[in-house]
Design a protein around this nucleic acid. Structure first.
Lengths: 353, 353
DNA sequence: GAACGAAATTTACGCAGGTAAAGAGTTAGC
DNA sequence: GCTAACTCTTTACCTGCGTAAATTTCGTTC
């Protein structure tokens, strides 16, 4: 028994409000009101309860409290996968915003699997969350599950929106603008840029590609897309970027072009491919190799060379999503408009392009 | 109204099992048993219920179900922060292992704040989770809260263990071994290595530093630690690594030494500092600059140069933590031993050292 | 065909606490 | 000094479901 530290450890533990009420001589309903809002009971009761709680260990049962209240005070969040700093950053900004609004956040991860995503939806519904924010698995998402969510509770999509859900509230980045920005910039400073894509087209990958194509057409330039086929099974993101671009370099292609990667993770692989072929991507030289990404992954400034990219305002997206959700929750379905908020991307010019 | 897709959308929605029982002509308790385990009711009832569920929309209330069961089927996980791929990877392996065991995972993030961590502990307790896995905030953690958790339910610490909690089960990496491995390797191939530390010493940073010092003493070499002071407020991890090592380089120091960084994120900053000073860290040359990290951050192989580091077996840690927790849950506190499982680190030799 | 069991279902109560309505206590007004 | 008006507390019932015990069902055996 190495520890018996402090007085905190030895307080008698009470299981129910009933026990607590006899322990400190206040009726159970009064306690119930106290725990929901201490100011809803008289000052004398409040102080008496506060003193009592110092002498015992008691935590109201989460399930019992949430079961009966009209509002559970919880919002559900579903993100597609964990090993991506973009989504964890988004989750973080949502958690902070929700905390500020006095809500508890329940996070579920779909782990890139539609079945898991659908199960997460069921879990959130069964928990009676007051609302849900979902970053979907793109077009792989279980549309029916999303529809159910949308019918049953206040619901906001973030990051991307499957085509079939165009009637659902959506907060994200204005991808056509943000990708257009990069396309335009690179067209201005060098040869027409090439788009490095991903094979498993999901999420915003398609939007990015389309935005690139549109902008190229607008500029009267010939678009070129590489990296659409799977090169090695299981090689995604960074690995795919390195392999796909490495293959081009090996054939002597693209070594002096501007490469727009579908996102920063692919761009990291692209930088690696360049290094492997002794190439030095950078904004410095006219006509030289340039590599750019999209998303402004937190590590971008620290890469060698630091990665030029388009920043998404993740904090704004998270906050706006929570704000919109709060509005819908308070309005109790009397809201008929459906909101789409798109934040513009911001060019982050660094060394790589 | 753009969508009315599928038959799934129009099914009548039932709120309670009671309603469902009259709707499909089976008693409510039978339904209750069905939802816990379909095989616990007769085949005829099972099929009847299954058919009925296709015609209506019903999801059992999560709170009501969990409130009465002896087991909630949930385990709680607390991680210190989100913007770190190490912890998200750990979380992922825990989620997969728990899913396999048929448990739902509730994740809470402490966001580097002891108060938030303590609140997360209260939330888990109030939810009656069957057990908890906590990656603590190091010595900043609210020890009393952890003690409470440990008294009330099966509890396992992962990643690091505050000194005051040495009596709690712990699963992690054998840091003295893993850091020793790197120290030894670098001592063998070049000049005595220097340790690049972090100012806000928390988590395993101190363990790493101590392991380095011990190994250096064992090897009869003079240890040297840099980067312990805060250089710029708010500059953590990568930024700190770049600033701290950059300062040394600017003074002409350490440019041909081996640098062991306290972790990979700091090492990424260190690589950046080297690039800024035109230095090319690598294993290639005798006596040249070498930079190594610790953790095997998923991006390490894709950095330029790819980062030599020590890999932690995150999957093994997550799985072992869940396995230990399951054992404790099944044993219902009859377990008196307290387990410590440390996985050895594995040298990942790459280009940078 | 009746009696016997095993299996399945139903009855009845419990969980921990929310909340409307009734009751008690206090202050204010006359 | 008494009643009105208000505040706070308590009574009593409710939530949605788990589960032990009681009951029914059904197939089997004698």
């Amino acid at each position: 028994m190495p520890k018996g530290s402090g007085a905190g450890g030895e307080r008698p533990r009470l299981r129910t409000m009933e026990e607590l009420s006899v322990a400190i001589g206040v009726s159970r309903p009064t306690l119930s009101r106290y725990f929901q809002d201490p100011d809803s009971v008289s000052r004398s009761s409040r102080e008496r309860i506060a003193r009592g709680l110092e002498r015992v260990e008691y935590v109201p049962n989460f399930f019992a409290t949430r079961m009966n209240r009209k509002s559970t005070g919880m919002i559900g969040v579903i993100i597609p996968y964990l090993n991506d700093l973009f989504f964890t950053k988004l989750q973080q900004s949502i958690e902070f915003a929700a905390m500020e609004a006095g809500f508890t956040v329940i996070v579920q991860c779909s782990h890139t699997t539609p079945e898991v995503e659908a199960r997460a939806v069921e879990t959130l519904i069964s928990m009676n969350v007051d609302g849900a924010i979902v970053a979907p698995l793109g077009d792989n998402s279980d549309i029916a599950a999303m529809e159910r969510l949308n019918r049953r509770l206040p619901f906001v999509l973030v990051d991307s929106r499957p085509g079939a859900l165009s009637h659902v509230d959506y907060i994200g980045t204005e991808h056509s603008q943000s990708m257009g920005l990069m396309t335009e910039y690179l067209s201005r400073v060098g040869d027409p840029p090439v788009f490095l894509a991903m094979p498993r087209v999901n999420f915003n990958a398609l939007n990015h590609e389309r935005a690139y194509l549109d902008k190229m057409e607008e500029l009267g330039l010939e678009p070129q897309v590489v990296g659409t086929e799977e090169i090695e099974p299981g090689a995604h993101y960074e690995a795919h970027g390195e392999l796909a671009l490495g293959r081009e370099f090996a054939e002597g292609r693209l070594t002096d072009r501007s490469i727009i990667c579908v996102n920063d993770r692919v761009a990291i692989g692209a930088l690696r491919a360049a290094a492997r072929f002794g190439l030095d991507p950078g904004a410095r030289r006219k006509g030289g190799l340039r590599i750019a990404g999209h998303d402004d992954y937190p590590l971008c400034p620290f890469l060698v060379p630091s990665l030029t990219t388009v920043g998404q305002d993740v904090d704004a997206i998270g906050q706006a999503a929570v704000a919109r959700l709060m509005k819908k929750i308070r309005a109790e379905n009397s809201l008929t408009d459906h909101a789409v908020t798109l934040f513009p991307g911001v060019l982050k010019l660094r060394e790589s392009a």
